[in-house]
């Protein structure tokens, strides 16, 4: 029973961190139909800035700088580069590939700066753990769950109640109609990118914090795990991103715990399992768990 609870909590914590990344993917996709391959390197940038600055500014200020800088960069990438491209959703693949180029540039530069170092982000949780009834949980993981819940709640509120959220939803529904109604598409889109960048930088903190050892040049690759999470829930649905992330986190944790019982399928299943779950879901619901069916009118 302890084992089960333990696994459940580990999975939830993992899922909470994935959710921050996956939500960023989804926001960007909803706003611009682009799959942002540079998400991992933006995450790395946020983490790197926090790591370098925390000794001078303290953790909170360093994190704020990291988050803002990453948001600014993401916004600039969209405004200066991607918005120059044709804006048709059917041509979004071009922007998607441009993000690969940006990813290469960013990762090369950051990897050169980080070198072989393991950077500490100076987070306040350290390696402290808390015992909750029968299970122990690291503070950093509890913080991850709390922060994710807060941030995701705030993002939902933004979506629902702010002018920007309304613009974004309008634009996602019908770009031309939105433009005709006076929605400033360029700005709406750019702000979405900024928000996603900020979320990625925030995720970097939890990816580098305690159960992990620190930030290194490959930390950004974790963003890949958010791909299935984002798709599983439905690419255009923030709720889906959250649900998908939790499913992926739990799947991973359970497969690790019961690895020895799943021996027949070969070892090291934990990396494959999320994708298998994703395929199964897509077979039943081709647009993800929360994706709209999208009726076709002739």
């Amino acid at each position: 029973m302890t084992g089960l609870l333990d696994t459940l909590l580990a999975g939830l914590a993992l899922g909470a961190v994935y959710a921050l990344v996956a939500l960023g993917f989804v926001i960007i996709f909803k706003a611009s139909h682009v799959m942002n391959f540079a998400h991992g390197s933006m995450l790395l940038l946020g983490g790197y800035l926090t790591a370098v600055l925390h000794e001078h500014l303290g953790f909170a200020a360093a994190l704020a700088v990291g988050v803002l800088a990453t948001a600014a960069l993401a916004g600039a990438v969209d405004r200066v580069l991607l918005q120059r491209l044709p804006q048709d959703p059917k041509a979004a693949h071009v922007a998607t590939i441009v993000t690969i180029g940006i990813d290469i540039l960013l990762v090369t530069d950051l990897a050169r700066r980080i070198g072989g170092d393991l950077l500490s982000l100076g987070d306040p949780w350290g390696d402290k753990v808390r015992t909750l009834g029968p299970v122990t949980v690291p503070d950093s993981r509890l913080a991850a769950v709390a922060v994710s819940a807060l941030v995701i709640g705030a993002v939902f509120a933004l979506f629902r109640y702010s002018r920007w959220g309304l613009s974004l939803r309008c634009a996602a529904e019908d770009t031309e109609a939105a433009a005709l109604q006076g929605v400033r598409l360029g700005r709406t889109r750019m702000l979405a990118w900024c928000l996603a960048g900020a979320l990625a930088a925030l995720a970097a903190v939890f990816l580098a914090a305690f159960p992990a050892t620190g930030l290194e040049r490959t930390t950004g690759q974790i963003a890949l795990k958010a791909f299935p999470a984002a798709i599983l829930g439905g690419l255009a649905s923030p709720v889906g991103a959250l649900a998908g992330s939790l499913v992926i986190g739990l799947t991973e944790a359970f497969v690790i715990t019961y690895q020895s019982d799943l021996h027949v399928l070969g070892d090291g299943l934990s990396d494959v399992a999320p994708y298998v779950v994703m395929i199964l879901v897509l077979l039943v619901r081709p647009n993800g768990l929360f994706g709209a069916k999208g009726a076709v009118r002739v």
């Binding site: 298998v276 897509l282 077979l283 081709p286």
Partner: peptide, 20 residues
Amino acid sequence: RVKGMYLGIATLALVFVGHH
């Protein structure tokens, strides 16, 4: 059944399953 970006990520699964 699956279209566009969804198919893109779904096929990603093949790479990981294949490697396994």
